[in-house]
């Protein structure tokens, strides 16, 4: 039997990039995957198609996870369609351009920039968790995986607003992990390094990549597929006794 057969997995922001790779990874292990997206219906449908091709079940739901009503609508649809939810991967985030050359300096940042990122990372996770946890509690089990970044440990480039929001998400996750342990629900984070190619990292210059590679024990930059295994691990029974952890997936760049 495949690892995620009869399991339902929601991956937020999974029409493209890392999210799409994660969705496909679950599907290959037999999961029923909900491909959540905001705008790009075409990409979402493509991800759905490739999930099904890999032997999973999948469908797409449009919902802006920073909107409570959207999240509620999405969860209702999930409950109707599949009855329950086993895994949530909070992968969606506010669009952000990772360009070391053009990044905003602290003096240029407004509180609004911070707020946007905090909303994109923490508020969205908050809404999704509020809706998903009651369903998980009913089953006395569940796994929540929140996507953060290795920059929280080592801000190679100070993307202030982005990294601050992701740091907050780790704190959020740890607190949740403690409280939800009593309900059999685990909460963990995955902290990738620079992942290429994705829409967000497309503008990263070769020079930067080389700089990162030079410091990375495993001598390359992560691809979306590199993130999949650790996410599946934290979502499966293989990690049934792991909660509140942040797993760095960056070729060993950060060791903590």
């Amino acid at each position: 039997m495949k690892k995620f057969e009869n399991k339902t997995v929601l991956v937020t922001g999974s029409s493209r990039g890392i999210g799409a790779a994660i969705a496909r990874g679950f599907a290959a292990e037999g999961a029923t995957v909900i491909v959540n997206y905001v705008q790009n219906q075409g990409a979402a449908e493509e991800t759905v198609a490739s999930c099904i091709e890999r032997g999973g079940e999948a469908w797409a739901i449009q919902a802006d996870v920073t909107s409570e009503s959207d999240v509620i609508r999405m969860m209702e649809e999930i409950e109707l369609e599949v009855g329950n939810i086993d895994v949530v991967v909070n992968n969606a985030f506010k669009p952000y351009v990772f360009n070391p050359d053009t990044r905003k300096m602290f003096s240029q940042l407004t509180w609004g920039d911070y707020q946007d990122q905090i909303d994109g990372a923490v508020k969205s996770t908050y809404y999704v968790c509020q809706q998903a946890i009651p369903l998980m509690k009913k089953q006395t089990k569940g796994s929540i995986v929140n996507m953060v970044t290795n920059l929280v440990e080592r801000p190679l480039i100070p993307y202030h607003d982005y990294t601050t929001a992701k740091s907050a998400l780790i704190g959020f996750s740890r607190n949740l992990a403690v409280e939800l342990g009593a309900f059999g629900i685990r909460v963990n984070c995955i902290a990738p390094g620079l992942v290429y190619p994705t829409d967000a990292s497309r503008q990263t210059r070769e020079e930067i990549k080389e700089m990162i590679i030079a410091q990375t024990p495993l001598r390359r930059i992560a691809q979306p597929e590199d993130i999949v295994g650790p996410v599946l691990f934290l979502s499966s029974e293989w990690s049934q006794f792991v909660t509140g952890q942040t797993l760095y997936v960056d070729g060993g760049l950060v060791m903590s």
């Binding site: 006395t140 089990k141 342990g181 309900f183 059999g184």
Partner: peptide, 9 residues
């Protein structure tokens, strides 16, 4: 009741 459930598990 939910706590009890996890304890039993």
């Amino acid at each position: 009741a939910q706590y009890l459930a996890l304890e039993l598990e």
